[in-house]
């Protein structure tokens, strides 16, 4: 299996959030994203800083939600990936 680059990991995290209805527990992100805790923490921090996700509290539990900016980013990334994949580089 090929190693994912940073871009692909970010897309995987955001797509996972979208699949789970835009709202996800950190543990689900950990398993679904196939990342170590430290790496996931780093990515979550970066995604929050960029405004692609936000932390919400639901019944006292921390969850992460994809923002509108995050949804737009995933859609744009899908287009980019589809075009670049077609070239096979």
């Amino acid at each position: 299996m090929e190693r994912r680059n940073k871009f692909e990991i970010i897309i995987d995290i955001l797509e996972l959030m979208q699949r789970k209805g835009g709202n996800i527990k950190p543990t689900h992100l950990l398993y679904g994203g196939n990342l170590s805790y430290d790496r996931l923490k780093k990515y979550i921090q970066e995604l929050e800083e960029k405004g692609l996700i936000m932390q919400v509290t639901d019944k006292g539990k921390i969850r992460y939600r994809i923002t509108d900016k995050g949804i737009n980013f995933v859609n744009e990334a899908r287009k980019i990936k589809e075009i670049t994949d077609a070239f096979g580089l």
Binding site: N5, K6, F7, E8, E76, A77, K79, I80, K81, I83, T84, F87, L89
Partner: peptide, 21 residues
């Protein structure tokens, strides 16, 4: 348009091949 998409791919991934594409 293809150049713009390839450039966006380069900005996102920093892969040299997308810059050249």
């Amino acid at each position: 348009f293809i150049g713009i998409y390839a450039y966006k791919a380069f900005k996102a991934t920093e892969k040299r091949e997308y810059k050249l594409l």
